[in-house]
Computed example of a mutant assay.
Amino acid sequence: MGAVMSFTKVTSDELKWAEDNPADVEDFVLGREREEAVDGYLDKGWRDLQELFDAADVDIELRDDGDFIDEEGVYFAWSSGLVAATAALLREATFERLRAHLDPEAAADESALAYVEGCYATLRAFFADAADSGSAAIMTFSY
């Protein structure tokens, strides 16, 4: 098994509530994920994306950005400012730019390439939507 990552769009007030009520965040996030039209679920593809961001010198830290909400390190608060900054970086970092940094074996595997590109598209669409609405986000990192 591996670590799975997802992002959930929230208002700044909801993010503040989550930070003040860490014991209730799981139920809140699960309920919100059912309502959202734009999905921020990256599955295990976040690791591949992070490797590409690092190799391409894109200043996005999927695992390390945001602030802890709970003591277990499952939920992280991404402010509306961090969401907007990440969306701007993703607009600049096209998949074509990132693809140049793929391991040649992975780039030749159509299934692996489609998976990573799909995760990238999910991430980019989520952050564009959240930034356009001035939203914050809760990142979930679970094993």
Score class of each variant (00 low, 15 high):
Met1Pro: 15
Met1Leu: 12
Met1Ser: 15
Gly2Thr: 10
Ala3Val: 07
Ala3Phe: 13
Val4Tyr: 15
Val4Arg: 15
Met5Arg: 15
Met5Lys: 10
Ser6Lys: 14
Phe7Met: 07
Thr11Gly: 08
Thr11Asn: 14
Ser12Val: 15
Asp13Met: 14
Lys16Ala: 14
Trp17Arg: 09
Ala18Leu: 02
Ala18Asp: 04
Ala18Trp: 07
Ala18Tyr: 05
Glu19Met: 15
Glu19His: 03
Asn21His: 15
Asp24Ser: 13
Asp24Lys: 11
Asp24Pro: 02
Val25Asp: 15
Glu26Cys: 07
Glu26Phe: 08
Leu30Gln: 13
Leu30Asp: 07
Leu30Gly: 08
Arg32Glu: 15
Arg32Cys: 04
Glu33Met: 15
Arg34Tyr: 06
Arg34Lys: 06
Glu35Val: 10
Glu36Val: 01
Glu36Trp: 01
Glu36Asp: 05
Val38Phe: 05
Asp39Ile: 04
Asp39Arg: 09
Leu42Asp: 01
Leu42Val: 05
Leu42Lys: 05
Lys44His: 12
Lys44Cys: 13
Gly45Asn: 12
Arg47Val: 05
Asp48Ser: 11
Gln50Pro: 07
Leu52Arg: 11
Leu52Trp: 08
Phe53Glu: 10
Ala55Glu: 11
Ala56Gly: 08
Asp57Pro: 00
Asp57Lys: 11
Asp57His: 07
Val58Phe: 11
Leu62Met: 09
Leu62Pro: 03
Gly66Met: 09
Ile69Leu: 04
Ile69Gln: 03
Asp70His: 08
Glu72Phe: 10
Tyr75Met: 07
Tyr75His: 11
Phe76Gln: 15
Phe76Lys: 14
Phe76Met: 14
Phe76Asp: 12
Ser79Ala: 11
Ser79Asn: 10
Ser79Gln: 06
Ser79Lys: 03
Ser80Cys: 14
Ser80Phe: 02
Gly81Phe: 12
Gly81Val: 08
Leu82Gln: 10
Ala87Lys: 10
Ala87His: 11
Ala88Asn: 04
Ala88Tyr: 02
Leu90Lys: 08
Arg91Ile: 02
Ala93Ile: 02
Phe95Asn: 03
Glu96Thr: 14
Glu96Lys: 09
Glu96Gly: 12
Arg99Ala: 13
Arg99Ser: 05
His101Ile: 02
Asp103His: 11
Pro104Met: 06
Pro104Ser: 04
Glu105Arg: 07
Glu105Met: 04
Ala108Pro: 05
Ala108Ser: 05
Asp109Lys: 01
Glu110His: 00
Ser111Leu: 07
Ala112Leu: 09
Ala112Trp: 15
Ala112Arg: 09
Leu113Phe: 02
Glu117Leu: 00
Cys119Trp: 04
Ala121Ser: 12
Ala121Thr: 12
Ala121Asp: 13
Ala121Gly: 08
Thr122His: 01
Thr122Ala: 01
Thr122Asn: 05
Leu123Pro: 00
Leu123Gly: 01
Arg124Ser: 02
Arg124Ile: 00
Arg124Glu: 04
Ala125Ile: 00
Phe127Ala: 03
Ala128Ile: 06
Asp129Phe: 01
Asp132Trp: 02
Ser135Cys: 10
Ser135Glu: 07
Ala137Arg: 03
Ile138Val: 10
Ile138Glu: 09
Met139Arg: 15
Thr140Trp: 12
Tyr143Lys: 14
